[in-house]
Structure formats: C-alpha cells, structure tokens
C-alpha cells in the first residue's frame, strides 16, 4: 500500500458569498511531484494556504503528513517546507545567514545548521557565495538556494508556489533537477507553475478552475483525454470549459 502524504476530502473555503475553494478532494503519495495548476483566481492560493495551516477551511477535512489541518497546524508547520516566488529569502542577509536563520526557525541545533549549510553549499556548488548578500545574487540562483533552504529540515512535504517565475530556462531546469532529487529522497513536492512545460515534469497534475478540481491525472493521460499535444492545450481546454 502506498503511503499517503496529503489527503484532502470535501475541502471548501468561502469568503462571504464567494466560494474560493469548492468541495475539493484529492490524495498525494509520498515522494510524488504533484502539480497544482489553474488560472489566476481559480482558488489555488487559498487551497495552499489551507493545506499549510495558514487559513481555516469553511468545511471538509484534510490531513497533511497524517496531521489534521484544524487541530494540528503547529505540527503541520514543522513537517512542511514552503517557498514562493514573492518571498523566499531575506535579501539583506548573506546566504549563510539565511540558512542559519531558517535552520533556527525549524529548530535545528548549531551542529545541524553547520552540517546543512555545508550540504547546501556543496549541493549547489556555491561555496563562493557563502558570504554574499542574497540581494546581489541573480534571481534564478536565489530561487535555487531558497528551495534548498525550504527543505533544510528534511520536511515530509514542500509547498512551492510558482517557484520559477521569471527564471531563465537553464536555471529553471536546474531547479527541477533539484526537485527530482528531493522527490527521490521521499519528500513530497506540491508545486504550482504558469509554465506548462514544467507541468510535464510532474508525476500527476490537478487542474483547478473556479474553485473546483476539473481534472486530475498524469500529464500523459490528461493529454490523451483532452486529445491535446501538450499541456498548454489541455490547460486552455479546461479553463475555457471545453
């Protein structure tokens, strides 16, 4: 039997009369790369916030790494990693300082932080950037470091909210190689993106539209189902309700 990492059943979020997330259900396996796609305003961000324990659902249930999203938000936050396009690292701290800070937040002790710092610098081959201010590092590299930092405490799940927005094609691919590596180590990857070629890198994809999940399958199957040559077409067909 597969080990479940995320289990969502009938989850909804209403803001007044507006239903942002409408009764969604899905499951994500351990170590899976799960692409969470949808148009702007489809309800993705609201759903992610609920899964991270930042927003209380209006109804429905969800378990993150076995923890209940109503009662065990503290435990959830310790078991997950999070990174987004808008905020990743402190620009006015150096790479090492950022690593130390986030390591500290996740409760790593001094030795662990030293180990993880060395690990991250070696992994990304950036020992030369150790004492460089993050603000002066190109975006793509910054995002790679941010991802490495988001998994510093070996979380069970990492949520990536448009992590590669605006990043150049080469660095974007290096970023995905990092994702593959961590997924291979058993970390579940929950990722949103506007790049449809990146959707193909995911094991499974969910397509959200107007608060509901319209489709959920492997990229392969989705393309077959919507008789499309690529994910871009699938996306357009779903978003336009065809």
């Amino acid at each position: 039997m597969k080990e479940l990492s995320i289990k969502v059943s009938n989850l909804s979020k209403r803001f007044g009369n507006f239903v942002a997330v409408d009764n969604i259900s899905f499951e994500v396996d351990k170590g899976e790369i799960f692409g969470f796609l949808g148009a702007n305003g489809a309800g993705k961000s609201t759903a992610i916030k609920m899964l991270c324990g930042l927003l209380e659902p209006s109804s429905g249930n969800a378990e993150i790494a076995g923890f209940d999203i109503y009662k065990e938000t503290e435990k959830i936050r310790k078991t997950i990693g999070y990174m987004s396009q808008k905020f990743s690292l402190y620009e006015d701290l150096t790479v090492a300082e950022n690593i130390r800070f986030f390591g500290g937040i996740y409760g790593l002790n001094k030795n662990e932080i030293a180990d993880r710092t060395k690990y991250i610098l070696d992994w990304l081959k950036i020992s030369n950037l150790r004492d460089v201010l993050v603000g002066s590092i190109p975006l793509g590299w910054k995002q790679k470091i941010a991802f490495a930092v988001s998994v510093i405490h070996n979380p069970k799940i990492v949520f990536l909210d448009e992590p590669t927005g605006g990043v150049d094609p080469i660095t974007r691919r290096q970023f995905w190689e990092m994702i593959y590596l961590k997924s291979g180590e058993g970390i579940t990857i929950f990722v949103t993106t506007h790049y449809m070629d990146e959707a193909e890198y995911c094991n499974r994809i969910s397509m959200m539209n107007k608060g509901i999940i319209e489709a959920l399958d492997t990229p392969e199957n989705l393309k077959a189902k919507y008789s499309s040559v690529n994910m871009d077409e699938v996306f357009l067909k779903i978003a336009r309700g065809k």
């Binding site: 148009a39 702007n40 927005g165 506007h194 871009d232 357009l236 978003a239």
Partner: peptide, 8 residues
C-alpha cells in the same frame, strides 16, 4: 503577460 495564466 508575466504572472498571467495561460488563458489570459
């Protein structure tokens, strides 16, 4: 079109 979904 940065940050805009594929449909838009």
């Amino acid at each position: 079109t940065t940050g805009v979904d594929p449909v838009s």
